[in-house]
Amino acid sequence: MPSRVTGNTLAELDRLLHVLIRQVALDRGIRLPARSRNNSVGIAALCGEHRDQGRLRALLRSTVCLRRHDGRAHHADRRGRGSMTAGWSNEAGSNTRQRYAYDLGEDITPSVEQMDDVCAFYDRLARAVVGGRRGTHPVPQHGLVLPAA
C-alpha cells in the first residue's frame, strides 16, 4: 500500500474518532473546546484521565509523514532529536508502550500486522468513548478499559 494511502487511512480513523467524541459529548451535554482537534482532550472529558495521549500524538506524527513526506520519518519526537516514534507497536497486539522508533529520513511504512494493531487501538478507544462515564472506570496501566458489559 503506498504511503499516502496508508496516511489517509490513519487520518480517517482519527477523524472518525473525533466525530464520535464530539457526538457523544453533545449527547451528554459535555462542552469541548470548539476548535480542538485533540482527541486526547475529548477522551479525558468523556472517560477521565487516560494514558493514550503519547500514542495518539505518535500516530498523528506518523500520519503527517506518510501523507506529506513520502513515507519518511520527518518529525522528531522532541526538537533536536534524530528519531521519531511511530504510533504502532513493535509487536502487533502486544498492547505495550514499546513503540516502533525510526531514524529521521527512514521509511516508516507500517506492516499489515502493525496496521491491525492501530485499528484495534482505535476500536478500543471508540468503545471506551461510547461506553465510558467520566470518573467511573479505573485508569489501567496501558490505556483505557472497556466498561463491563
Rank of each mutant, 00 (worst) to 15 (best):
T6E: 03
Q23N: 15
Q98S: 13
R124S: 14
M84C: 09
T96Q: 07
A25D: 07
L60P: 00
R31H: 08
L59S: 03
L125Y: 08
Y102K: 02
C47M: 06
C119Y: 15
C47D: 04
D116T: 10
T109S: 12
A45M: 12
Y102W: 13
A148D: 06
R81M: 11
R37P: 00
G80C: 05
T63M: 14
H50Q: 10
T9C: 10
V24C: 12
V139Q: 09
A126Y: 13
A92F: 10
N95T: 11
Q114S: 12
T96L: 11
R28G: 10
N38R: 11
R78S: 06
A76D: 02
R31F: 10
L144G: 01
R28P: 04
L20V: 12
G54W: 02
R79F: 13
R133F: 15
A86T: 08
P147N: 02
V130W: 13
G82E: 06
R124Y: 13
W88N: 02
V19D: 08
W88D: 01
L56P: 00
R124H: 14
A92W: 05
T96R: 03
C119F: 15
G54K: 01
G143P: 01
L20Y: 12
D103L: 12
R124V: 11
G7L: 06
R61W: 02
E106L: 05
H137R: 11
S89E: 11
P138W: 13
C65T: 02
V24E: 14
G48N: 01
L59H: 04
Q98L: 14
L46M: 10
I108G: 07
E12Q: 06
V145C: 05
V139W: 05
G71Y: 02
G143H: 05
A92Q: 03
R22A: 15
P140I: 02
R31T: 11
D117A: 10
Q141A: 05
V64D: 02
N8Y: 10
N38A: 12
Q114N: 08
R51Q: 05
V112A: 06
G82S: 07
G29K: 00
L10P: 01
H74C: 14
C47P: 01
G80Q: 02
P147C: 04
V64S: 03
C47Y: 12
V130H: 09
I108C: 10
L16M: 09
L60E: 07
A58I: 04
I43L: 12
S89H: 10
R37Y: 12
T96H: 04
C65W: 04
L17Q: 03
Q98A: 14
D116S: 11
A44E: 08
R78W: 10
V5M: 03
A101N: 06
Q53Y: 11
Y100V: 07
F121N: 01
D103S: 13
G135P: 11
A44W: 05
L10N: 03
R35V: 06
V112E: 01
P140F: 07
R81P: 00
R22H: 13
H50N: 08
L146P: 00
R127F: 15
L59P: 00
P2T: 09
